[in-house]
Design a protein around this nucleic acid. Structure first.
Lengths: 221, 221
DNA sequence: TACGCAATAACAGTATACAGATTTAAAGGT
DNA sequence: ACCTTTAAATCTGTATACTGTTATTGCGTA
């Protein structure tokens, strides 16, 4: 008989908030307090606490003496993670290129169309969405599970970088152009092209970030 | 006045057991039960539970319905982590090569001498120790903290691989030879040499593992 | 208005208690 | 002896209660 897999409360809460974080539904103003969330779910503080502590240890949340918030990544930390991405993502994407299903490619196609439409509309949040869909689609196709999980771990960095770069028109056009190129490379299941393209993509992201960061810190002087 | 940094019990327990695991002081026969450890430390179950759950989520322990044990890595998982190591460790070691202090190099020198002495004595546990010292020394010198933490996370794989390869005489000699070469490359602070050497080292480890694994599974037929 | 200080509130860490699940042990039947 | 069923022990998940620490608030003072 089909056993309802009896999920633990803490796992339900964990998944729920991991999803919210990864979909960018939380802002830096949100303060998560276990007692409040516990009341919301009609459970005790403990499973919520377990879930939040786990998210904090994994880097998705920052714990303070006053609840949990989104982590504030330092400039240095962001640059360090760019180095990790340069090492991991080209290879991972190349591996994924052989695994993407036709459905995945259709998803990519729709997301790329969405991405390109934002050039006209200037709708940043749609560009956010499109980027996220594209990224998740190929990452989920990475057959090396350990590699995939390692990449998934620095979601917070991706968000932080997007936050500071998406408002720059030049970076925006570059991004959309990369999206189109990714679709092409993935569609051809050309691992070599994908590997090089993703490397260039990460490097371009780093450049955009440095440019935006420089502009921002300059304005503070 | 100097504030004693008031460490939480759960963090003390976490550090204690992380150390024991990383030093290889636990075997697969050991079953860790929070109530038992709690009694040992004269604390309640909760902080011990927090510590063990964290270790489990980080991959250092496997949780079952009956306490925590060392994780049993599958063949596939071990191979996947070898791929991660190929991508990360050459670069990380190259970065570390510029950061190693003279003290670090002295430590490496002693460890390499210890490693070489095991060719005569055949003392496997000493080879274990030497490998661990060498590895930890250069990893701790990696200046990119995110990269370093990522590498430190798959300690369990390292242990598992050592376990199955160290009893093979050929693998043993190869390992000792690599240790000597690492000392040379690190001493010269030659990033290029180090990068290539570590790549070859990881590849050799993978070969040894596959050989040992093949021999083992063959014997089961 | 700005600053320092104490009272207060909010929250995480820890303790204890209990319930649910699962393995091990025991008992009984073939 | 061996399989099946039942009972007991064991351990985790969750709930509730308490404690300690730290941020916040509000008051008094310059």
């Amino acid at each position: 008989m089909s056993v309802p897999p009896k999920r633990h409360i803490k796992d339900v809460i964990y998944d729920e908030y991991l999803g919210r974080i990864q979909r960018g539904e939380l802002t830096h103003n949100d303060r998560l307090v276990d007692t409040a969330v516990a009341a919301e779910f009609n459970v005790s503080r403990m499973p919520v606490r377990d879930a939040f502590m786990r998210l904090a240890h994994e880097g998705y949340l920052a714990s303070s003496t006053r609840g949990f918030t989104l982590p504030e990544l330092g400039h240095r930390q962001i640059l360090e993670i760019f180095e990790l991405r340069r090492l991991l993502e080209p290879r991972a994407a190349a591996l994924a290129s052989f695994e993407l299903t036709d459905d995945d490619l259709k998803t990519l196609e729709r997301a790329v169309a969405l991405s390109e439409s934002t050039i006209e509309t200037g709708d940043i949040s749609q560009l956010f969405n499109a980027s996220e869909i594209i990224r998740r689609t190929w990452i989920m196709a990475v057959p090396n599970i350990e590699l995939r999980d390692t990449i998934l771990r620095y979601m917070a960095q991706i968000q932080a970088v997007r936050m500071v770069t998406f408002h720059d028109a030049a970076s925006q056009r570059t991004l959309v152009s990369f999206h189109r190129q990714m679709l092409t490379a993935f569609s051809r299941r050309n691992g070599i092209d994908v590997e090089l393209l993703i490397l260039r993509f990460v490097l371009a992201g780093e450049e955009s970030y440095l440019r935006a960061h420089g502009a921002h810190t300059d304005s503070l002087l």
